[in-house]
Amino acid sequence: MKNPPAKPSQLITKEFARQLNVNYNNKRASLTAKKAQKEDANAIWYSLEELENYIHYIKTNGAKDGYNVDGIRFYFGIYPDDEKHGEKAGLTTLFLVPTGKKIENNTAKIQSFALVQEASSSDIQSLDPMNYGNIGRPPSLLY
């Protein structure tokens, strides 16, 4: 393979991932399940195509809105206990929110390129978050 991808620095061992999942199942999911009287999701799945489309969407529309999109923040949520959410009502979800920095045009520079503001990345409020990954059937999976 020509130019293989660099190994991401955020990788964790399968054993540690399993322990994180067991901890979640034992501590969080059991609390939610007791309250909801049904089994809660402990994993959410998105296809590569969905993720690639979302990344393309946030990069393209973020640039139009004047942002340098630099990441995605993952948030946990719980669907409202409302019949319009069907079987997901009261259960855990995971949604994605783009992050980035507002680009400021520096007119003092002779070149006409934009300089990225020296600020920390924040959630980009002008772009829609992504939700509705597949929790699978049954929802609870073991890592």
Rank of each mutant, 00 (worst) to 15 (best):
L31F: 15
N23S: 15
G136Y: 14
K64L: 12
D65H: 10
Y67A: 06
D81G: 01
L31I: 12
R28Q: 15
D65M: 10
N42S: 11
R28I: 15
A114Y: 00
P8E: 10
A89K: 10
K59V: 01
Q117F: 05
Y75F: 14
A119P: 00
G71M: 05
E15G: 03
K64R: 07
R73Q: 09
N53K: 11
A119I: 14
P8A: 12
K101W: 05
L31V: 12
E52T: 04
D123Q: 06
A41N: 10
I103F: 05
L48K: 12
E15R: 11
A114W: 00
V69Y: 08
S120L: 09
I58Y: 01
K64A: 13
P5Y: 09
G86K: 08
L91C: 11
E39A: 13
V116C: 03
G100L: 09
A63C: 01
R73H: 08
A6H: 12
Y79E: 08
G90T: 02
L48Y: 06
M130H: 01
K14H: 05
G66I: 06
F76W: 09
V116I: 13
A33P: 00
H85S: 03
W45L: 11
E49C: 00
G71L: 05
D70I: 11
K84L: 07
E15H: 03
A63K: 06
D65S: 12
T32R: 15
P98M: 02
I44E: 10
I78E: 09
P5A: 13
I58P: 01
T60D: 08
A114L: 03
P5M: 07
K109V: 03
I55Q: 02
I135Q: 05
Y24L: 12
K7C: 07
P138Y: 04
A108M: 03
K88Y: 15
P139E: 10
S122P: 01
L91N: 07
I124R: 02
T92D: 07
I78H: 05
Q125H: 04
Y143L: 10
V97L: 02
K101F: 04
R28G: 13
Q117N: 11
Y143A: 13
G77T: 10
N23R: 08
E49R: 06
F95Y: 15
V22R: 03
P138A: 14
I103D: 06
N3Q: 14
I12G: 12
A114K: 02
S140I: 12
P8K: 10
T13L: 08
L20N: 14
P5F: 13
F113Y: 01
K34W: 02
D128P: 01
A43T: 08
V97H: 05
V116Y: 10
I135V: 15
N23Q: 08
A33R: 15
S120G: 09
F74Q: 01
V69H: 05
P8H: 08
N61W: 08
V22A: 12
K7L: 15
R137D: 11
E104A: 01
F76T: 14
F95R: 03
K38R: 10
Q37E: 13
G62E: 05
Y75W: 07
